[in-house]
């Protein structure tokens, strides 16, 4: 069952991605991009990571692609300006380079015998383990505990204790990054009335 879902999702993801790349109209490309995100999110759910799946949908499909759509509409390319990419030399170069890449990587992956690796376990065993033990693997709570550390049951001591997990640093840095990006985008996007015709 899981395998079939995975297979269908994989096929859809690949097809939609190919369509993103091949479409002339950028709006179509963005729609297919959304279509590409959904199978990926499904696969995340299969991997016992609901939090990340939801975040993916929210942020990627909900924010980033909306941004994209706004920009596409703002740019307002006319029909005739959809350039024909057929005469591009980079098409061939890209094809060559990408195929080399795929050949190298896939052959490596293919020839490496994964089952010999003791660390990896099959999905069935993991899912059995997770279901039976009742561990919440990829839930929101688990991720939150990962970042902020395990909560203390005693409320008074909880106030005193400082958050002592390493991931806090990167968390704060990420937020700073977002603020910086926000400010940057604001500055860059400020409309300059004298330049718009």
């Amino acid at each position: 069952m899981v395998d079939i879902i995975f297979l269908i999702c994989a096929i859809f993801a690949v097809i939609f991605s190919v369509l993103v790349v091949l479409m002339k109209n950028p709006i179509y490309s963005s729609l297919f991009l959304v279509g590409s995100f959904l199978p990926i999110a499904t696969i995340y759910i299969l991997m016992y990571a609901p939090f990340v799946a939801v975040i993916q949908i929210l942020v990627y499909a909900g924010a980033i692609l909306v941004l994209f759509t706004f920009v596409i509409m703002m740019i307002d390319l006319k029909e005739k300006e959809f350039k024909i990419d057929k005469s591009n030399i980079y098409r061939f170069l890209a094809f060559g380079v990408v195929s080399i890449f795929l050949i190298i990587m896939l052959s490596y992956v293919g020839f490496k015998t994964f089952p010999d690796n003791k660390i990896q376990v099959s999905h069935a065993k993991i899912s059995d383990y997770l279901d039976k033990k009742g561990k919440t693997f990829g839930s929101t709570k688990a991720v939150g505990e990962l970042i902020f550390g395990k909560p203390d049951k005693n409320p008074i001591e909880a106030n005193k204790k400082t958050m002592s997990s390493m991931q806090i640093v990167s968390f704060e840095l990420a937020s700073i990054l977002i603020i910086v990006a926000l400010v940057g985008a604001l500055v860059l996007g400020k409309s300059r009335r004298e330049k718009i015709k």
């Binding site: 591009n88 980079y90 170069l93 890209a94 380079v97 990408v98 080399i100 890449f101 190298i104």
Partner: peptide, 12 residues
């Protein structure tokens, strides 16, 4: 595009 191509080649 050509710069991106160089990136990918380097990555490879």
């Amino acid at each position: 595009n050509s710069y991106a191509l160089s990136f990918i080649i380097g990555t490879i």
